[in-house]
Design a protein around this nucleic acid. Structure first.
Length: 439
DNA sequence: AATTGTTTACCCATGC
DNA sequence: GCATGGGTAAACAATT
């Protein structure tokens, strides 16, 4: 049966609730999160019924966004000013609609109170990375690891501004390095390798349950028609969408992880003075994630005066991406698979190379007590990382899991780069999983 | 001023 | 009948 056109409802009211419509808009967006205006636009583009009486339904929609726990508000990036926050779906809300039907839900999605508090606390902390770092430094506690955070209402809301950073700076025993303009790294993508294309691969838009979901031209139809709009978690875990991880994902993932994760764990201490401005948010994200890790793969010592921005960003991004995506996709511990969402499948080999240069080689020296910094060539930049960096933390949530293709992949990666026999892209994507990545 | 976000209240439909 | 989900209105606060 041919799919109805996106305007097939005409002026008829579509049989979808506002929650469904909003979920469609979010799910169909490249970054899996939308501003309110983008949600409006999606709905109006796809459902002519909603091009009139806008005030009425938009008010209802806003009510739904606030009222339903399945929607999470992610603060805007400081370098992307504008009105309103980003809205995303709570990962646990993926199965909200029975059999993928966007009609009436089985049950309202409700986050338990403690989890909601943790989520809000996580988001509040992410809003102010430097203060978090400072607090963790002074108290010696992990950002969220000490147990439940006080409710949001008890916290001082502090905008992430140059002024607030400067204010924090004044209290620090060591001065921060000169601040670049407040500009956070775009997406924390690893530095592009010469042969790596980081072009955005749009997510396959989950098709409708029964060929009834109109599709916007901006949301290309899916490759198959058997997909649920909210695919079950196991399926998603084995076929992760090719998200381009942005800082928003890290924000979301960190907060979600914080809300889902058991509390406890070691405290990563980061010296703010040693941290480049552009790393703060990443570090904060990882620190928030820390409750379900046991420590950071990138130790504080790694952040030295000679460490390049690219090196730290790459190391952090690769780690954070693993966490963020797996946490975004569900509440299960991160799988042992290394699925780097920044890389299209064909570029996984390149991703591996990146990881090799930053992690894999170091692992070989795990038992080496030599504290001399290791020097790694990173394109045109020198990268200095302490040997400690290479120690992959153990006892992390997820338990490490199976050793999937540990030693094959670098070889395969090399082969692919050398133009040799190629592993099918999708397979390589799924098999790119050195055990060292099962952190 | 306009937009965005929160909260409360009420009504109706549906399922048990 | 009751609980729940969904839609609407409205008041108000916060933000840009």
């Amino acid at each position: 049966m041919p799919r109805p056109s996106r305007e097939s409802y005409g002026d008829q009211k579509p049989p979808y609730s506002y929650i469904s419509l909003t979920a469609m808009a979010i799910w169909g967006s490249p970054e899996k999160m939308c501003t309110l205006a983008e949600i409006y636009k999606f709905i109006m583009d796809n459902f002519p019924y909603y091009r009139k009486n806008t005030q009425r339904w938009q008010n209802s929609l806003r009510h739904n966004l606030s009222f339903n726990d399945c929607f999470i508000k992610i603060p805007r990036r400081p370098d992307r000013p504008g009105k309103g926050a980003y809205w995303t779906l709570h990962p646990s809300a993926m199965n909200m609609f029975e059999n993928g039907s966007f009609l009436r839900r089985r049950k309202r999605f409700k986050i338990p109170k403690p989890e909601k508090d943790a989520l809000e606390a996580g988001l509040a902390q992410i809003n102010n990375p430097l203060r978090c770092l400072e607090a963790s430094r002074c108290s010696g506690e992990t950002l969220l690891g000490g147990g439940a955070m006080p409710p949001l209402s008890h916290q001082t809301k502090q905008p992430f501004t140059v002024e607030s950073l400067a204010a924090s700076d004044a209290k620090l025993p060591q001065p921060l390095p000169p601040m670049p303009p407040v500009s956070l790294p775009l997406g924390f993508l690893p530095p592009p390798m010469p042969h790596v294309s980081l072009t955005h691969r749009p997510l396959p838009f989950p098709p409708p349950p029964s060929d009834t979901l109109p599709l916007s031209p901006t949301h290309p139809p899916p490759p198959t028609s058997q997909y649920s709009p909210y695919p079950p978690l196991p399926h998603m875990m084995h076929h992760p969408p090719h998200l381009t991880p942005s800082i928003h994902h890290l924000y979301a993932a960190a907060a979600m992880a914080a809300s889902l994760a058991p509390c406890g764990g070691a405290a990563p201490l980061v010296r703010p003075a040693a941290v480049h401005m552009s790393h703060l948010t990443t570090l904060a994200s990882l620190s928030v994630l820390n409750p379900f890790t046991s420590s950071l793969p990138l130790r504080p010592q790694a952040v030295g005066p000679r460490t390049s921005t690219a090196a730290i960003s790459a190391a952090l991004a690769s780690t954070a991406s693993d966490y963020s995506v797996s946490r975004l996709l569900g509440s299960k511990p991160p799988p042992p698979l290394f699925t780097h969402p920044a890389m299209p499948p064909t570029s996984c080999a390149a991703a591996l190379t990146l990881h090799n240069s930053h992690f894999h080689d170091f692992c070989a020296e795990e038992d080496d007590d030599d504290d001399e910094p290791i020097h790694v060539e990173d394109d045109d930049e020198d990268v200095t990382m302490a040997p400690e960096d290479s120690r992959i933390p153990s006892g992390v949530a997820g338990g490490g899991g199976a050793d999937v293709g540990t030693n094959k992949l670098p070889t395969e990666a090399r082969r692919e780069q050398e133009g040799g026999p190629q592993v099918p892209a999708e397979e390589l994507f799924l098999r790119t999983s050195p055990s060292v990545r099962s952190i």
